[in-house]
Design a protein around this nucleic acid. Sequence first.
DNA 1: TTGACTCAGTTCGGATTCAAGACTTAGTTA
DNA 2: TAACTAAGTCTTGAATCCGAACTGAGTCAA
Lengths: 148, 148
Amino acid sequence: MKWTDLPDEDCSVARSVAVIGDRWTLMILRDLFLGVRRFEAFERRLGISRSIIADRLKKLVDEGVLRRDAYQENPVRHEYRLTNKGLALHPVMMAIVHWGDVHRAGAAGAPLIHRHKACGCDFAPVMSCSECGDRITARDVEVRARPR
Amino acid sequence: MKWTDLPDEDCSVARSVAVIGDRWTLMILRDLFLGVRRFEAFERRLGISRSIIADRLKKLVDEGVLRRDAYQENPVRHEYRLTNKGLALHPVMMAIVHWGDVHRAGAAGAPLIHRHKACGCDFAPVMSCSECGDRITARDVEVRARPR
DNA sequence: TTGACTCAGTTCGGATTCAAGACTTAGTTA
DNA sequence: TAACTAAGTCTTGAATCCGAACTGAGTCAA
């Protein structure tokens, strides 16, 4: 298998990874969730080459994860915003941040704090069951193929 | 910035991405969560070159995500198992699967079904607040830097 | 005891991708 | 007229990827 075959696999991981399974794509998504929208801001924050940023943004737009909107005319300038499909990646980002906070933070601890606006608490993201609401760990889940 | 600098960034996303931000690493982790443990099985399932598998497995072992255990002597053969640090990636995988199920599945729908053993229901993974238990979306979260 | 087979890798080398820096375009400000 | 801004594109050497072949340590069948 080549990675170009990933989108055609009958597996949701493969199909997702085809979109987000790239270092810089994930870093750009991080910044998007922090409110960054302009090309130049990505460049300044990430310090990577413009060609990589242009390429990744274009792919995300093609996938429907981002929308490219004009924010001024003369000259026309665009900004990149998460679509609903892109916003739906929030649990993925939260899970990645949380794992990094717990398992890869230095002595200084987590660099960022997340506050839940509704309850006012600083929180950790928890994966739970849509049906009963209980917290879910790897051992609680039984996987089987969906009957066709 | 080069990607080799990612582990040193003061950002949990960057530090996590340095470990899991790679297509084949994510595909290997998928199989690990499905119970695959042996080199030959990864090769058969993924159909990619042995050198990639060997490289990714070694990196995951170095990072403490996997443990390399002997399962027989004469000749000695090893298998790869998720450590607790690796099992902690479960929410990341579930979030990725779920996004793929919802936003990238074909007409046939999600290929796999997840059942919560405790409540017996087929479920979707939901990201919720560790403090109040409510479901969390991107708009519910306020991010700020942790004071030093 | 020769040959085929298994599992778990390593090595090699050509093709692909990455990524820094220079260049482009279109308009603005000094 | 020159410098500046935002958002890219182009070029080119370097790094990485990855398929194919090879290695090694043992088993099994004839």
